[in-house]
């Protein structure tokens, strides 16, 4: 889901950097020293997840763990995603430096929205099945929202990208289902063993 360098227009890049800077400021303000190791761990998971590809038919994709990151880190997800994407850009040439703001914004904002919409419902769910259901929807939602934001940025840059956007969204439906399932099982484990991890 990385947008490459040189694809987006200047206006879109600047707007995304503004959003990312605001998110980073909020995230750094909310960062607690006790939670820094947790942020580093999830940032590492996100950094490595892009290297593990899952085959879907003729194509392949990779997990992003956006929903678990959002549900565990809350607003601190911005610095975590930013760090991981910066290292992915430097070490693996995914994305780029100028487009880092846009890539951070699309992913971290999706994770943050997932936390805002589903965080409380999952935290306060008394029954595990109920929490798992919310977590499944949250996992799928994060992927679809992220893909939609990427599509919107491409569409804002050039209307010719609209066909590609439709394919992009369709390609992310299987990943949304997989992420939903992964988030669901992860949240059920956290609810049983370490509920304090949920932000």
């Amino acid at each position: 889901m990385h947008i490459s360098e040189g694809v987006l227009s200047g206006e879109v890049l600047i707007s995304c950097w503004a959003g990312t800077c605001a998110g980073l400021a909020l995230g750094l303000k909310k960062t607690d020293t006790k939670k820094i190791v947790r942020v580093a761990f999830l940032s590492s998971v996100f950094f490595l997840a892009s290297l593990v590809n899952i085959r879907i038919g003729a194509s392949s994709t990779h997990l992003s763990f956006l929903a678990p990151m959002g549900l565990i880190l809350g607003p601190v997800v911005f610095p975590a995603v930013f760090t991981a994407l910066l290292l992915q850009g430097v070490l693996f040439h995914f994305g780029g430096v100028l487009v880092l703001g846009a890539n951070t914004f699309t992913m971290a904002f999706s994770a943050l929205m997932t936390y805002i919409i589903f965080g409380r419902a999952i935290r306060e769910s008394k029954k595990i099945f109920q929490a798992m259901t919310f977590a499944f929807i949250a996992g799928a939602f994060a992927v679809i929202l992220s893909a939609s934001l990427v599509g919107a940025l491409l569409g804002l840059t050039d209307k010719n990208f609209l066909t590609a956007v439709k394919i992009l969204l369709a390609a992310h439906v299987p990943l949304a289902l997989i992420e939903g399932a992964v988030t669901s099982f992860l949240i059920s484990w956290l609810k049983k063993n370490s509920p304090e991890f949920l932000c």
């Binding site: 590492s44 950094f47 760090t83």
Partner: peptide, 20 residues
């Protein structure tokens, strides 16, 4: 690829411990 992945994770945790 493996070395770069390891370097990335190492950098993240080193940065975290530096902040702490």
């Amino acid at each position: 690829l493996f070395i770069r992945a390891l370097l990335g994770v190492s950098l993240i945790f080193n940065a975290a411990f530096l902040i702490i």
